[in-house]
């Protein structure tokens, strides 16, 4: 089953196209890994897939409410405890059970600690645990392994594997090898050409 279907997509940052002519699709059970140098436009592409910004051109088709997005920032409230942070997101997505999420990311022993007292890696784990309570099929992840240690990367990889095994899919921008069967999609050849004169200039102001 196709979960995301991208056709001839151009994405723009600050009104300037950064990637153009992207066409791919992601089916359930598939992990798509985006690769490309810094500044290539991976984050912009992921934000477009998550619906945070409109495509510059082309189309992104997703089932409604299919995408769970995790960015560089984890969206944690430092004065709330780990449990309160997760309970909030679980509630927003209409769930209550945060037990599996705490277990999968080894946060059980930290659950009553304020998120502000966590280390960078622990915060990241909490930010990723949020994905488990969204119950959405497509995980769109931007550099999810930043500041994670080797053991935590394994926890994360196991969580992604379990997610796709249960019919989900993941689109991950990362620079490291996570050790699962993945489709690698290198964005470098799709870099937008700067020498083309574009007639829709006022898009830049929108």
């Amino acid at each position: 089953m196709k979960l995301i279907y991208v056709k001839n997509l151009t994405v723009a940052r600050g009104g300037m196209p950064v990637l153009e002519g992207l066409s791919f699709d992601v089916s359930s059970g598939e992990i798509l890994v985006l690769r490309g140098p810094n500044g290539a436009g991976k984050t912009t592409l992921l934000r477009t897939l998550a619906g945070l910004q409109p495509p510059y051109a082309g189309t992104v088709e997703t089932a409604p409410d299919a995408v769970a997005y995790a960015a560089h920032a984890d969206g944690l409230k430092t004065t709330l405890t780990v449990r309160e942070n997760l309970m909030f997101w679980a509630g927003v997505y209409g769930g209550r059970d945060i037990g599996p999420a705490l277990r999968d990311f080894n946060l059980d022993s930290l659950s009553e600690r304020p998120a502000g007292n966590l280390s960078a890696g622990q915060k990241r784990r909490l930010g990723l645990a949020r994905l488990r309570v969204t119950h959405r099929p497509v995980w769109v992840l931007d550099e999810p392994t930043v500041s994670l240690d080797v053991a935590s990367v394994d926890l994360f990889a196991a969580a992604v594997k379990a997610h796709v095994a249960s019919g989900g899919a993941a689109i991950i921008a990362t620079h490291i090898q996570l050790g699962f069967e993945e489709t690698v999609f290198d964005v470098t050849p799709y870099k937008a050409r700067m020498d083309v004169v574009r007639d829709d200039f006022d898009e830049a102001f929108l």
Binding site: D65, V67, Y69, A73, D74, L76, T78, W89
Partner: peptide, 16 residues
Amino acid sequence: LDFEDGSLDLLATAPI
């Protein structure tokens, strides 16, 4: 505050 810690991005993609 929500913008700085990334919550606003996540709220914008949430079902609310």
